[in-house]
Design a protein around this nucleic acid. Structure first.
Lengths: 143, 143
DNA sequence: ACTCACGCTTACGTTAACGTCAGCAACGTA
DNA sequence: TACGTTGCTGACGTTAACGTAAGCGTGAGT
């Protein structure tokens, strides 16, 4: 196991993930990232990079940064004592239900979009046949 | 086909969906709902109720009200002309990609939560065995 | 010594999606 | 007729998640 001591500057990490410097600094402000400091400059390690990706995924899912924090922090929780572990299990259950609900929502929406698309294509086909009967219109480009 | 002329007041609809009156009025302000008016009072029909449910689903999915509008409006688009239909098909494709991305994100997150849960339960089991060896602790309640 | 490029902090600005409050109208009822 | 409920319209307030701008520091080139 190599320790993986790659390091990213703030703008490298920002470019790679299509976010602004301000966003990364903001995530540090709210405690989601904690890059090393060399002088005043931030140095991001693999750990920060991984956390950033988890954050962005949470963001795509529409979670708030607060919710994202509870999720992301689960991943590097120390074994800890019984109370913490059962609390963690509760949190996992909560998040799982939320995610299941969202997945159902997504599947319903996708199904309905498919219906709309079908109707849409039928309408288009109808219009095509109507156009055939009236023949090509003036003003149309022919090669 | 009965016309389904059920009618809801604003507070009935709000209670049923666990939102505030302000929220429903706001959705009207931004054009997502357009209830009938009897005098100044709003009267919501089945159509509004259905749209509200679509709106709330979009909200759970983390879409902005603007994005929700483009989705919800797809459902009652008139057949229209070719340009509109192909535009609609494009919009559907866009939304489908977004939703697919989100579904992948959800499945990844669920898988990782399952891993965390497994580790968590293992840690708990370890602690249980350790407790067995040290015997019951003082201060514990026995029936 | 000068100039970029890159980075930092501080702090006010912005947008979305409502919350909250004041003031008023209509309506059933005790 | 007084009152409680329900609903309305402004209009200002709030929170999250950054945007944006000012002013400054620092190391690599020229």
């Amino acid at each position: 196991m190599t320790p993986d001591d790659r390091i990213w500057t703030i703008s490298q990490l920002a470019r790679e993930h299509a976010v602004t410097l301000r966003t990364l600094r903001h995530y540090e402000d709210v405690g989601l990232l904690s890059p090393e400091r060399r002088g005043t400059a931030r140095l991001f390690h693999q750990r920060d990079r991984t956390r950033l990706r988890l954050i962005l995924r949470g963001r795509r899912l529409g979670f708030t940064l607060g919710e994202i924090a509870t999720i992301v922090d689960m991943y590097d929780e120390q074994p800890g004592e019984v109370g913490q572990l059962t609390y963690l299990l509760e949190q996992i259950a909560v998040r799982r239900e939320e995610l299941d609900q969202r997945r159902r929502d997504i599947e319903d929406t996708l199904a309905e979009l498919a219906e709309v698309e079908t109707r849409c294509r039928e309408d288009l086909a109808r219009l095509d046949r109507a156009e055939d009967r009236t023949g090509p219109r003036a003003g149309e480009a022919y090669p």
